[in-house]
Computed example of a mutant assay.
Amino acid sequence: MADFDAQPGRNAPLDSELSSAQLEADEVDLYAGLRGVAGLVADARGLIAVLGEVAEFARRAIPGVEGAGVTLVDSLEDSSSVETWAVTAEFVERIDKAQYVDVHEGPCVTCMQSRRPTVSGSLGSDSRWPHFGGRVARMGVHSALALPLIVGDQVIGAVNAYAHHRDAFGEHAVELGGQFAGPAAASVYNAQLLARAQERTTQLQRALGSRAMIDQAIGIIRSRSGASAEEAFDRLTRLSQSENIKLAVVAERLVNESVRRARARQGV
């Protein structure tokens, strides 16, 4: 039996009404989704590409989904700072904007707080989100399934699934969604780690480039004035402070001017 937070006072659709053929087809779709997110890890794609693929695989893997999105928690902020990074349909983006920006309530917010799947079969009458539910129902969307993405003890985001008709997600859908969310979380987490490593590498390369430019500027000052390396660096620093310009920019300007003068003397 799937463990999830259902809409209070509303009965979910019975799985017994599903045919064996439908159950088998759902299992095939789930397997395809799981195989897809596993491939994302192996491909080492960029973060945005991975999130878009995860959203699309979720739409296919979870029965009843008409639009899906992936939301991430901003790890540099508190847990309430979330943002939708990928959607499979425009209406999902509008729904999640209402959830995160306008009213700060909804199934995704709840599922990340509870760390449990959250289901609603009639958003307009769901007492848990009085401001969110009515707004989304007026968009013609009545069912929601939010699945937390958890790695270790950390909630890194959520997969949000929506449908226009009521009671789209029963226990069967929640169970398959839960099976999908675990591998999806691993793929998203690994993509985040890769993106951060690439960002740190880029920052390091920039820092090394700036350091090389500063060293060149120090050498130019020393050759012109006979100053020591420390004295030349102090001159650069004072110039940076007096003009309120970054040290690397001052150094680059000095190097470029020296090169221009050298070329002028050589008639280049």
Results as ranks from 00 to 15, higher is better:
5 D>F: 14
8 P>V: 10
9 G>D: 09
9 G>S: 08
11 N>F: 12
12 A>Q: 15
15 D>H: 11
17 E>T: 14
18 L>D: 02
24 E>L: 15
25 A>R: 10
27 E>Q: 12
28 V>Q: 13
28 V>Y: 08
28 V>I: 15
28 V>D: 13
28 V>R: 14
32 A>P: 05
33 G>Q: 09
35 R>K: 14
35 R>T: 12
39 G>C: 08
42 A>L: 14
44 A>E: 11
45 R>I: 04
46 G>V: 10
47 L>E: 00
47 L>C: 06
48 I>Q: 13
49 A>G: 02
49 A>H: 11
52 G>V: 07
53 E>G: 00
54 V>E: 03
58 A>G: 10
59 R>S: 09
61 A>M: 13
64 G>H: 03
65 V>Q: 02
66 E>N: 13
66 E>C: 14
67 G>A: 07
68 A>D: 06
69 G>A: 09
70 V>R: 00
73 V>R: 02
74 D>S: 09
75 S>C: 00
79 S>G: 00
80 S>W: 06
81 S>I: 01
82 V>Y: 01
84 T>D: 01
84 T>Q: 03
88 T>P: 01
89 A>Y: 03
91 F>H: 07
92 V>Q: 00
96 D>K: 04
97 K>P: 01
98 A>S: 05
103 V>N: 01
103 V>G: 03
105 E>G: 01
111 C>Q: 04
119 V>I: 14
120 S>Q: 07
120 S>T: 07
121 G>S: 08
122 S>K: 10
123 L>A: 05
123 L>T: 05
124 G>M: 08
124 G>K: 02
126 D>Q: 07
128 R>N: 11
128 R>Q: 14
129 W>G: 04
132 F>I: 10
133 G>V: 02
133 G>N: 06
137 A>W: 11
137 A>M: 07
137 A>C: 10
140 G>R: 08
142 H>L: 13
142 H>D: 09
142 H>I: 05
145 L>H: 05
146 A>M: 12
148 P>L: 09
148 P>I: 07
150 I>H: 02
156 I>A: 00
158 A>N: 03
158 A>H: 04
160 N>D: 11
160 N>F: 03
163 A>T: 12
165 H>V: 13
165 H>G: 14
167 D>L: 15
167 D>T: 10
169 F>S: 06
174 V>S: 01
175 E>I: 12
177 G>C: 11
180 F>D: 00
182 G>T: 12
182 G>W: 11
186 A>Q: 09
187 S>E: 06
188 V>I: 08
191 A>R: 00
193 L>N: 09
194 L>T: 04
195 A>Y: 09
201 T>R: 15
203 Q>M: 15
203 Q>L: 15
205 Q>S: 12
205 Q>R: 13
208 L>E: 15
214 I>A: 03
215 D>C: 06
216 Q>S: 07
219 G>A: 08
222 R>Y: 13
222 R>P: 00
223 S>E: 08
225 S>I: 09
227 A>S: 12
227 A>P: 03
230 E>G: 01
232 A>F: 05
233 F>T: 02
234 D>G: 04
235 R>H: 13
236 L>D: 03
238 R>F: 10
240 S>I: 07
245 I>M: 14
249 V>N: 08
250 V>M: 10
252 E>K: 12
252 E>L: 12
252 E>V: 06
254 L>D: 01
255 V>W: 07
256 N>F: 12
256 N>R: 15
257 E>P: 02
258 S>E: 07
261 R>A: 11
261 R>L: 15
261 R>F: 14
264 A>I: 11
266 Q>F: 10
268 V>T: 10
